[in-house]
Design a protein around this nucleic acid. Sequence first.
DNA 1: GTTTTTGCTACTAAAACAATAGCACGGCAT
DNA 2: ATGCCGTGCTATTGTTTTAGTAGCAAAAAC
Lengths: 116, 116
Amino acid sequence: MNDDDENVKIAKVGQKVRGSKTGQPIMILFDLLGRRWAMGIIWNLSAQNCTFRELQARCDSLSPTVLNTRLKELRAANLVEKAQHGYGLTAEGTKLFKMLEPLGDWSYEWTDMLAE
Amino acid sequence: MNDDDENVKIAKVGQKVRGSKTGQPIMILFDLLGRRWAMGIIWNLSAQNCTFRELQARCDSLSPTVLNTRLKELRAANLVEKAQHGYGLTAEGTKLFKMLEPLGDWSYEWTDMLAE
DNA sequence: GTTTTTGCTACTAAAACAATAGCACGGCAT
DNA sequence: ATGCCGTGCTATTGTTTTAGTAGCAAAAAC
């Protein structure tokens, strides 16, 4: 278990993000969350802490390559951390989840509407 | 201006999404929003309706290819629609934005914390 | 009726992601 | 102590997305 993730790139404020030169906080956040499985990982960890392989299973067997990349990013962003049992959300990560939570209910009415 | 976007793929409930076989609404939503610039487009349109090229400029000159793809997807998802002046959010799109809005303020404290 | 602007397609290159195999390490039972 | 298992993770290769640039047809402005 090495913790030398010096080469994980999370943009800093003012820096240009993947395709965004302004580097406003919200765009840095969207850049981070707008990556495959990022929000799904947070969503799953909110339910309960998971080991690497449990997370993989819950996220419908996403490849370990991507999972590991996302975990490094989310840890660098201080949203996820290693816990007693595998990985878990940090305090900030939980805050973020609380804000995403309403999407859960809304997504049902949204897909219902789309189905019509 | 053609509107025959029959080949835009937004998953239906129960269907397997890009990498998700369960097809829960929240995962369909995350699949959609977890694409480059999807949330950024919604964010920008919430401020004011934009033409194609205005949107491009606001989203830091993202390529027209991607912008057009995202617009088709978001229109198929009934979150964005053509308006008098360019594109705008639908009623549902505005609802979604309202839920994302808190992220704006939080992102500042988050990046501040990361900077320490 | 010519010049702009707008929405968009075509094409190519780079980056991200998916899929599979498998290794190193820790626990644990024998 | 040794063989077995689960866990975290890297390596490799192939596919999909995204980026970047050029430019065209239709509408709008003049």
